[in-house]
C-alpha cells in the first residue's frame, strides 16, 4: 500500500504549488485544502448542481496555469477565487435567474432559531426577497466584488488580486453595489412582517 506522503500543515499554498512543478500530485493537496470552501461559495451563487463541476474546472484550470503562479503570494485563495469568478461568469444568466426566483418565492424552509435570534430572523426572512432582487439587478462586475467580500470573506486587497484590478476599483465597485442594496432595502421596512 502506497500512502500519499503526509502534507505538513505548515506548508504554505505557494510552497505546495512550487513543489507541484516537479511533482504534479502535490497539487491535489491544494484541492483537499480549498475544494470544500470553493464548493460552498459556488453553491451560494449557482446552486449545488453546477458547483461540483465548476470546482473541478477551477482546479483543472489552476493546475494548467500553476507555472505562472506568483510564488511570492503564500495564500492561493485570491488566485483560486479569481478563477472561480471567471467560471461563474459563464453562468451569469443562471445566477440572476436563481436570485430572481428567490425574489418571487417566500423562504424555502422554516429554520428553527434560538429565541433571541427570532427578531433578526424575522427581519432577515422579510428582506430576503428584496436582497435577492437587488443582487439579480447588479451589474456582474459589481456583484463579483460584493460577493467576494461578503460571501468569500476576502479583504479588499485580496479581492483586487483575485480580479486583477486596483484596490481603488474594488472600493468604488463595492460602494456602488452596497448603495444599490441599501436603496432597495430602504424601500421596505425590514421589521414589518409584510415587507
Amino acid at each position: 500500500m502506497t500512502a500519499a506522503p503526509a502534507v505538513p500543515e505548515t506548508e504554505t499554498d505557494a510552497e505546495l504549488i512550487r513543489r507541484s512543478h516537479a511533482d504534479p500530485e502535490a497539487f491535489a493537496a491544494l484541492f483537499d485544502r480549498y475544494a470544500p470552501m470553493l464548493y460552498r461559495y459556488v453553491s451560494r451563487r449557482l446552486g449545488p448542481e453546477q458547483a461540483e463541476d465548476i470546482v473541478g474546472d477551477t482546479f483543472l484550470a489552476a493546475f494548467g496555469r500553476r507555472a505562472r503562479y506568483d510564488l511570492e503570494r503564500p495564500d492561493a485563495r485570491p488566485w483560486l477565487f479569481g478563477i472561480v469568478t471567471k467560471l461563474v461568469a459563464r453562468h451569469h444568466r443562471d445566477e440572476a435567474a436563481r436570485y430572481r426566483a428567490l425574489r418571487r418565492s417566500p423562504a424555502e424552509h422554516a429554520v428553527p432559531f434560538p429565541d433571541d435570534a427570532v427578531d433578526d430572523a424575522v427581519a432577515a426572512a422579510g428582506v430576503r426577497p428584496v436582497l435577492a432582487g437587488a443582487l439579480a439587478a447588479l451589474p456582474r462586475r459589481d456583484r463579483d466584488v460584493l460577493l467576494l467580500v461578503a460571501w468569500a470573506d476576502l479583504s479588499y486587497a485580496e479581492t483586487a488580486a483575485a480580479l486583477g484590478i486596483p484596490v481603488g476599483t474594488v472600493r468604488s465597485r463595492l460602494n456602488r453595489a452596497r448603495r444599490k442594496i441599501r436603496a432597495a432595502l430602504g424601500d421596505t421596512d425590514p421589521m414589518r412582517e409584510e415587507a
Binding site: A35, A51, L131, A150, W151, I181, L185
Partner: peptide
C-alpha cells in the same frame, strides 16, 4: 443581511 442570505443559500460539499 447579505451574509445571512448567503448562509441560507449555501450547500455542504
Amino acid at each position: 443581511l447579505l451574509r445571512d442570505l448567503g448562509r441560507d443559500l449555501e450547500h455542504e460539499p
